[in-house]
Nucleic acid binder design. Structure first.
Lengths: 207, 207
DNA sequence: TGACCTATATAGTGAACGCTACATATCGCG
DNA sequence: CGCGATATGTAGCGTTCACTATATAGGTCA
């Protein structure tokens, strides 16, 4: 008993509470989920809630971080620097559409939709996470296609937000995927033309 | 009479009130605008508000109808049946981006963003108007490019929603326009290829 | 055991929400 | 001028919001 000086009694599983909150926030959005909704879903009372999480906004941040870790797109793999953009960007769009439309209840991107929260603190949290994703795309494009980086990054941002919003508004999975395929094909065509124009340019042999 | 403790002003301009509400709802969204915000902006008291408009949701509907009449994109002209889609669809995207990003305060599409209202009645109103726009695009494409109508209509819907969401989240006007130009060029390229493929094919001349 | 400590439930807090009962002020009309 | 109809201001309705003061139940240690 020397090692454990004092054991915290886990009267209720706090991580499980974060998971419950994550689902509720993803399903309905930050503002539409009330304290009463959360405490009822967790089967606890408000004082336990505040002892465990501090505030609704703080729990939202934990829920979004959990979402980012468990559900966010693997940008590191999708946007590996040795991957040509004509392959990476369509793959990213497909992966996004697949995730946004997969679960009929948890539609869209929790972070992207969190940008619309009325609460400033919650919105700021979402903005920080969303900026991370956008900057990852931008950093990748700065390496592989610096001339078109800004335009392509903005096009990706707009398309991803449109996919998330459309998913939230009920566009079926198959049609979301079809739009992602279409946008990906557009990008691939555009990049193919650019490559043809600059024929003898940097030839990065792909493994 | 000690003093006229209560003064009453002449009747206020109800249409002007709708215009004020339209601006507030567009700027902040339905849920983020409270009755206190509305009555303060109109310089009236709640009973006058309810005598004039019935409810917050009813005023939102009037404000969105006003928006649709005054600010909505001229789909009839942009999507005239005799206009080729390779010209009409990019023009629609450009017009949308132009409108969504023009006013730094009234960003995005009021109807599209109204789809996110928590209040069911307000959301239903927005959905009815939004469906009208989508169906106009779909009806145009059914005429001019029936084979690709569904996919192109969905692509347009996703891109328009992405443009509106990105505008609301602060993407600058010039970058919105650049994304719209890019997406429009993608569509034009795609449709040009389709036309080349079916050059000598069955030319079912529609009158 | 019994002091100690933490997490819990009871039962609220004040503020803001959309909305309204009521009395009073203004207007059109004779 | 007076009367009815109407619209407005004062004041407050009931509800819900995020959040908390207080006391107790239950586990951990001496």
């Amino acid at each position: 008993m020397n090692a454990k000086t004092r054991q915290r009694r886990p009267a209720f599983d706090r991580e499980a509470g974060v998971a419950i909150a994550q689902a509720l926030f993803h399903e309905r959005g930050y503002d539409a989920v009330s304290l009463a909704d959360l405490t009822e879903a967790m089967n606890i009372k408000p004082p336990s809630f505040y002892a465990a999480y501090g505030s609704k906004a703080a729990l939202f941040e934990r829920a979004m971080l959990r979402y980012a870790q468990e559900n966010a797109l693997p940008l590191d793999e999708l946007l590996a620097p040795d991957r040509p953009p004509a392959q990476a960007l369509p793959a990213l769009l497909l992966a996004a559409a697949e995730q946004y439309g997969r679960d009929s209840l948890l539609r869209g991107c929790m972070i992207t939709e969190g940008l619309r929260a009325d609460d400033p603190a919650a919105r700021q949290t979402a903005e920080n996470l969303a900026n991370g994703g956008i900057q990852a795309i931008r950093a990748y494009l700065d390496q592989v296609s610096p001339q078109e980086a800004q335009t392509l990054a903005d096009y990706m941002a707009v398309t991803l937000r449109g996919l998330s919003a459309s998913a939230c508004n009920g566009m079926p999975y198959e049609r979301l995927m079809q739009v992602a395929r279409t946008a990906g094909r557009f990008i691939a065509h555009e990049l193919a033309e650019k490559t043809e124009e600059s024929t003898a340019a940097s030839i990065s042999s792909d493994p």
